[in-house]
Write a protein that binds this DNA or RNA. Structure first.
Lengths: 222, 222
DNA sequence: GGCACGATTTTGATGAATCAAAATTGTAAT
DNA sequence: ATTACAATTTTGATTCATCAAAATCGTGCC
């Protein structure tokens, strides 16, 4: 009864959906789940009912779905694999951070525990992947950091880029080419509601203007 | 229209089946194919007919199946991936040669061309995997070596183990623990038809007796 | 030459995952 | 309250890969 790749993907999407969710209520709506997985809404409903049967999720019709402890354990395992693999591909295989997502997406379902362990050791039990996403520990714990987006962090104060929450290759290449990868130190110089943009001061005092939508995907620590 | 894992496995099995086949006729019987893939005979027939539809194999009812050039190209690609991955897992990840088969079996279907290329470079464009199986080149060429089994090679003459044609983990561990891995130099001291066994002189003049069945899986070069 | 047996093919059915489109439900606005 | 819209669920079908068991084919043997 080991979970299929499909089941693993559903659990992972619900897990991530829960964290993207506003504070208290932890029910992921079917529509959001279907969109995240790129499937038709009806398919999500059918599948989630099956997952509820096997005790991996709690399903409330018309309201949404949430992981049970069993489901969360499995989801964390898959996410751990995904992020370790991404880091491995960048760190050891010398691939670029914008081209590792698809490989990780596939490999996370098939590589042995032994191989994952080897990667983990080789990388020194890392806590974060190349995008700054936390890597769950073997027993499912997530490192928690208090981060802010570029829309909410203090202005004219040096902050460190900690996480980029978008896997789109073109976006990642943009971030990289403007020296905004995790680890870089930057400042927010100005925010403008009207033009919907944020002006940054980056490496070598270079000014970079990005849209608010993009700014919300850059998480920083003060 | 990229081939599914299932299709890739069928092609690979036919490819390997063809080489295991006695010289001239290159038709792999359905029964053999079904056994190799661990499926029911009827399933093989159905699937092979579909493969014939797509031009990957030539199918002769009641006689067997053979790869077309298109099918051979795909099969060689899969085998190349499989063997590169096995070597990578041993050489780079420090895994044992008896525990890499299953990972390779899964990964061969999912990793990107880019990642395979990186492995190939990192390993220095190797021609053989840890078991001595030849790795097809990117354009599908197989290195050919004239090897003999321990049942047919010259006796009382130093020969070098070149290939072990069995993926069974227990067998591989046996080979390793008796210092009979590819690269080792040994001699055949005696063959006995009646007891169905072969006596070898291995490293440090150690005597090792193995059955004829096992001996047929050790290929050596003079 | 006929027959029996082993290999192969056919048939009918199943489970997993999916879709499109129709039906239903919940809610927010009038 | 009604109603209208958006989200969700249901329905009916499809595709892929598989099996078991029945039907068929080909070959070797007497």
């Amino acid at each position: 009864m080991l979970p299929s790749s499909t089941v693993e993907n559903y659990l992972k999407a619900i897990y991530v959906g829960e964290t993207h969710l506003a504070g208290d209520q932890k029910l992921v709506p079917m529509g959001q789940l279907a969109t995240a997985l790129g499937i038709a809404p009806g398919t999500a409903t059918t599948m989630v009912k099956a997952l509820a049967e096997s005790g991996l999720v709690a399903y409330e019709p018309y309201n949404g779905v949430r992981l049970t402890p069993a489901g969360e354990k499995l989801a964390a395992r898959v996410l751990r694999r995904h992020r370790l693999i991404e880091l491995f591909l960048v760190q050891v295989m010398g691939m670029n951070w914008d081209e590792v997502h698809d490989d990780a997406e596939q490999m996370e379902h098939v590589v042995s525990d032994k191989l994952i362990e080897r990667m983990d050791e080789m990388l020194g039990h890392p806590a974060f992947d190349p995008h700054g996403d936390p890597i769950p520990t073997a027993d499912g714990q997530l490192a928690h950091r208090a981060l802010e987006t570029l829309l909410t962090c203090p202005m004219n104060t040096p902050v460190t880029v900690a996480r980029v929450t978008d896997q789109d290759a073109a976006f990642l290449r943009f971030i990289e080419s403007h020296n905004l990868k995790p680890g870089e130190t930057i400042q927010v110089e100005a925010r403008d509601e009207v033009s919907d943009s944020v002006v940054l001061i980056g490496r070598n005092d270079q000014r970079i203007t990005i849209g608010a939508r993009a700014a919300s995907k850059l998480l920083v620590a003060s």
